[in-house]
């Protein structure tokens, strides 16, 4: 279970509060108007934004004092998820060892992960030689190898077309199922939330509300969500 305990995040004149729990093994969409603090919330979980108050806990362990790299999570950003000067295989290999001193077995694991996301044989290429969708797959192959129980997605597929985006969400779903990941995904598209996530969490008015079943939330949206959706 991921707990945000009495969390308060300030940025400039803006404050976001959260006091909620996300059950392990679920997939939760973080929805809300732009500027509401969806990404800030994710940053706090990932360790890029120090909370002004409160704690972040995973399975009872306090994550707050841990640097980003030591937290039990992988994160995909909106862009810059790959190092352009490293090969595809190196980018994936970073998920095993950040200094890239890989054993023969680990190299084989990298190949297997690339195979799993449908990029077999593309290891020696550089990211620039790949399409946008393929680049997303490389980042997901790295998630596979990192084997961290939490996966945070900060709209990493926003630049892809609808069909590609659906394909990536499908891949995320199958990876999450296979590895038993707990997924938190920032999105402003209700369709994305419905496609991937069993739970949805509304961020609005300086408050992150506890997650609810996605279908139930959209079937009977509270006033704030209705305003956002325009229904």
């Amino acid at each position: 279970m991921l707990q945000l305990e009495d969390l308060e995040l300030r940025q400039g004149g803006f404050a976001l509060r959260a006091n909620l729990a996300v059950p392990a093994g679920t997939r939760t969409a973080i929805i809300g108007p732009s500027g509401a603090g969806k990404s800030t919330l994710l940053s706090a979980v990932a360790g890029f934004h120090d909370p002004d108050r409160g704690r972040v806990l995973w399975q009872g362990q306090d994550l707050t004092p841990l640097p980003p790299g030591q937290r039990p999570l992988s994160i995909l950003f909106q862009d810059n998820n790959l190092f352009p000067h490293l090969t595809v295989a190196q980018n994936v290999g970073l998920g095993l060892r950040p200094d890239l001193r890989l054993s023969r077995q680990q190299r084989a694991d990298v190949e297997a992960a690339l195979d799993r996301v449908g990029l077999a044989g593309l290891g020696p290429r550089r990211p620039a030689a790949l399409s946008g969708g393929q680049q997303s797959r490389v980042a997901l192959a790295r998630v596979l190898l990192r084997k961290r129980p939490l996966l945070l997605l900060d709209e990493p597929f926003a630049a892809l077309g609808p069909a590609l985006k659906a394909e990536m969400l499908g891949l995320v779903g199958s990876i999450a199922n296979g590895s038993g990941l707990t997924v938190l995904m920032v999105t402003h598209d209700p369709a994305d939330a419905r496609r991937l996530c069993d739970l949805a969490l509304l961020v609005e008015g300086g408050q992150a509300h506890p997650p609810q079943p996605t279908e139930a939330l959209f079937a009977d949206p509270p006033e704030a969500l209705r305003r956002y959706l325009g229904t």
Binding site: F48, N81, F83
Partner: peptide
């Protein structure tokens, strides 16, 4: 942020 999230620090 990418480097930090992957635990790449110092000399690495």
């Amino acid at each position: 942020r990418l480097a930090s999230s992957l635990g790449m620090a110092g000399w690495t």
